[in-house]
Amino acid sequence: MPFVTVKSTAQPTTLFYEEVGEGRPVVFIHGWPLSSAMWEYQMGAVADAGFRAIAYDRRGFGRSDHPAAGYDYDTFADDLNAVLETLDLRDVTLVGFSMGGGEVARFMSRHGADRIASVVFASAVTPYLLKGDNNPDGVDGDVFTEMKEKLRDERPAFLETFGKQFFGQGMLSHPVSQATLDSSLVVAMQASKKGTLDCVDAFSKTDFRQDIASIRVPTLIIHGDDDKVIPIDASARRLAREIPGSVLKEYDGAPHALVITHKDDFNRDLVSFLQGSI
């Protein structure tokens, strides 16, 4: 299996990646608490459109190493940089979903745009989730504290419940099958408990507003207006205002996991953006 080794941290860490297709590279950064497996509907669509699709597992998740430390966005951005440098990728489009949007933002401010052609934020945590005096539109910190408590108490039970919210599953709403819910739980349980817990702090407490200010490449923002995990008012709508010239696509009734529940719409918009039609 293909791996990239990150040597810039105290403990060398190997990151699993997969790729398909040829052409200009598109690098996918997955959300919490999943892995690169979540991009299965995008990888083929992007490759069929004439691009090279690459997705990797974040440290602590999927088939990458599960180190005891390094679950912060500076390290995540350096991991992403290691993937780009090791594979010598240039003219790249970065696609970050949920907490993966944080990697995109921090990478751009920390490593610059020399290798980057454009960026996509999908259901992303940016610009800043945690509610506070200087961020009154954010999410209350008690939400994240409760998440961590439930993860410590019984991780499978919490992730099963979270998965339903993730996909917008309810009594009258069934956007995905039980098989999809079950397989996503299996993927989520492949992550280390330490990484799963630490990442809650990372994506909830990291302020990306200064990182966002450094983005000067074409930017596409996609978010569902029924996202119960990361409310659109606290994220995408603010993000669009803070990145001059960015394009915001709002999906009516879409939940957090729109790359799966609304995969045809998402793939159409992503490919159009890659081809310069958006």
Rank of each mutant, 00 (worst) to 15 (best):
V4H: 08
V176T: 06
D226S: 13
S123C: 13
E18D: 13
M38K: 04
S235C: 15
F167N: 10
H262P: 14
S98Q: 07
D264T: 12
V187W: 09
Q165V: 07
P231V: 13
S192N: 08
V143S: 02
S277R: 15
S192L: 10
G102H: 01
L248D: 10
V186D: 11
V119C: 11
I54W: 08
F16P: 03
Y56D: 01
G96Y: 04
P25K: 00
S64L: 07
N81L: 10
G21T: 14
G23R: 14
R216S: 14
P255N: 02
T13R: 08
K150Q: 15
A240N: 15
Y17D: 00
S183P: 12
D79L: 08
V271D: 07
Q178A: 07
A124S: 15
V20N: 12
D74R: 13
D142I: 01
R115N: 08
I215K: 14
V247N: 05
T5N: 09
F51T: 00
D269S: 02
D57R: 06
V139I: 15
V229K: 02
Y251W: 14
A69H: 11
M43N: 01
A10E: 11
G50I: 09
S173L: 06
A191N: 07
P2Y: 08
D74I: 01
V120Q: 05
M108G: 07
S235M: 09
W39H: 09
Q169R: 08
D265T: 04
S36A: 14
Y56R: 03
V92M: 07
K194V: 13
E154F: 11
R106E: 00
S36M: 12
R59Q: 05
R58Y: 00
A213E: 04
W32T: 03
S173C: 05
D48F: 12
S35F: 01
V6R: 14
D72V: 00
G138M: 02
L84C: 03
S204L: 07
R155T: 07
A124M: 05
I29W: 00
D78A: 14
G170N: 12
V217T: 08
I215T: 06
L15H: 05
K263I: 01
T13A: 09
K7S: 07
V259K: 00
M147I: 14
K131M: 11
F273L: 12
I221T: 01
L197R: 04
I116S: 03
D233P: 07
A113K: 12
G23Q: 10
R152Y: 06
G31R: 11
L239K: 03
G253F: 12
L80M: 10
A257F: 02
G23M: 11
L239I: 06
T145N: 10
K7M: 04
R152W: 05
E160S: 11
D72K: 01
L89Y: 12
M147Q: 06
D91A: 00
W32N: 06
N267R: 13
Y128D: 02
R52F: 12
F121V: 00
A202R: 02
G112K: 04
I243R: 05
G50Q: 10
L220C: 05
G100T: 07
I232C: 05
V4Q: 03
I260F: 13
F61V: 04
Q11K: 09
E250I: 13
R58W: 02
G31Q: 05
D265M: 10
